[in-house]
Amino acid sequence: MGLAFSLCFSQGKLYLQNYSNYDLMMRVVGGSTTSCVPEAITSMSFPAATQAVINNYNDAFPYTTGWSVTTTMGTNPIGQTIPSGLLTAISPITRWKFAYYQTQDPVTGSTVYDTVDHNMGDSAAFPYCPWNSSTFIDGTVTDSFWFYIPSDNATYLVIQ
């Protein structure tokens, strides 16, 4: 029973699909659906016109080399370089929670500002520790969609 419960709420895959002409500087968060911790946060650089599947925290290379993990409320995050046993341990009890990104010109590296913030996620899935997020944002530079498919235990972030 414990394994079945763990699989129902385990991290699952994160499909990042950047169909835009911009590189993305991202903040990506995974965490418990029943409390605010454990929680893992990273900064990620994701190229223009790139699609990738991230199976778990340890599978996020080359887009990031590590995560900051909080296991207890009110404590400082613990830095974890990929691969990490702690990241492996928290993966079955967390789910992809939130992503924020800014667009950058792939040639100059300069930030291309949008008229809105792309705070992506589904706050309803994390009622005890929601991030201010939306499942769809219509920007002037990019549009973004965030959705979760329970039958596949898969989270998608699509940018176009």
Rank of each mutant, 00 (worst) to 15 (best):
S91E: 13
P92G: 13
P92D: 13
P92S: 14
P92R: 07
R95V: 12
R95K: 15
R95G: 12
W96R: 02
K97N: 03
F98M: 07
F98V: 05
A99I: 11
A99G: 11
A99Q: 03
Y100F: 15
Y100S: 11
Y100G: 00
Y100H: 11
Y101K: 00
T103Q: 06
T103W: 05
Q104D: 02
Q104A: 14
D105N: 15
D105F: 10
P106K: 05
P106M: 12
V107A: 14
V107S: 11
V107E: 13
V107N: 10
T108E: 05
T108L: 07
T108F: 08
G109P: 01
G109H: 04
G109N: 06
G109F: 10
G109A: 10
S110C: 08
S110W: 08
T111D: 06
T111V: 13
Y113H: 08
D114M: 03
D114V: 07
T115C: 09
T115G: 07
T115L: 12
V116H: 02
V116L: 05
V116K: 02
V116M: 02
D117V: 08
D117Q: 05
H118F: 14
H118T: 06
N119G: 02
G121S: 03
G121Y: 02
G121H: 06
D122R: 00
D122L: 05
A124F: 09
A124K: 03
A124G: 06
A124I: 09
F126T: 02
F126N: 03
F126M: 04
P127W: 05
P127M: 07
P127Q: 06
P127R: 01
Y128Q: 09
Y128T: 11
P130D: 14
P130R: 02
P130M: 11
W131P: 00
W131H: 03
N132A: 14
N132I: 11
N132G: 07
S133P: 00
S133I: 03
S134F: 08
S134K: 02
T135L: 03
T135S: 09
F136S: 14
F136I: 13
F136H: 08
I137A: 09
I137S: 10
D138E: 12
G139D: 09
T140C: 08
D143V: 04
D143N: 13
D143L: 01
D143G: 01
S144P: 00
S144Y: 08
S144G: 15
S144H: 04
F145I: 11
F145S: 08
F145R: 03
W146Q: 04
F147T: 11
F147R: 03
Y148Q: 02
I149G: 01
I149E: 13
I149H: 03
P150K: 12
D152G: 00
D152F: 09
N153Y: 03
